[in-house]
Amino acid sequence: MINDRRVISVADLSKVYKGGFRALDQVSLEITRGEVFGLLGPNGAGKTTLINIIAGLSKATSGSISVLGMDVVKDYREVRRAIGLVQQEINADYFFSVREIVAIQAGYFGIKNPGPAVERTLKSLNLWDKRDTSGRKLSGGMKRRVMIAKALVHDPDILFLDEPTAGVDVELRDNLWRLIGELKARGKTIILTTHYLEEAEQLADRIGLINQGRIIRVQDKASLLKEFGLAHVSLELDQAMGKLPPAAKELHGKLEGNTLTVNHLVDVDGVPTLQDLMAQLTEQNIRIKNVTFAKTSLNDIYRELINGEHRS
């Protein structure tokens, strides 16, 4: 049953570039139908290499990948029909209009009469008004949107978005986030890479942490965030506490003298909120003298993981 839901299986994938740089090291990963999977890692971690190999832009040194049960090398034609890739680097064909660019891409996928598919795709991305604009005259954000149109025109089941919001303004970022939600609602499986924890937190159902070519953790978002928190809140108390209050325990709290540090979470079901914690402190007549708030960075998570403080 679980196997039926598996759309991508990566097994023992390694990639060693000429000169010996190991971009991927024995990566194994499974992506489930209909999920948004966030591949989270710092620059140079191997995110792009991984999705480029799945999409056919790069060759693996060893290991295997199957997409919808088909091998990415042997059955590449069927696999590529199932995949849309939006690359990180913005590209645009300067010679053609938006409509032509997307129609040509549809042609590469063997779509005989691309008109309707192009129109549907451009409209869904609010690009229809720009259909006759030349690729040369598009703004960076528009180019990004045209790239998404190219990736979607053949209606793939699986969409890869490589750092979709890198270098885009807030408005476009919000648009993209909304679009990803809509695509998920239409049943697409989406794999996005990002180095923003916030983005993965907003969009992903599951998060894979990748560092130096290795997947170091794959976990559903809620439990990952519960473990690490979006931010750490330090409460300076007016007296030392003997033991952690119950809410603090669940928030991975730590006591050091008068300071209580907990993970701060937003909207994670079944997890106590800061308000619950404060209520428990008030019950014990403990007053808060000062509060400091530090957003959890990806680096914090890596540091904690590498220090082995968290084991699950």
Binding site: Y76, R77, E78, I83, L85, N91, A92, D93, Y108, G110
Partner: peptide, 17 residues
Amino acid sequence: LSKIMGTLSDLLVSPMT
């Protein structure tokens, strides 16, 4: 040109042989 504009990859991700 397609190497410089980055559009060669559009071809490479397609099912074309």
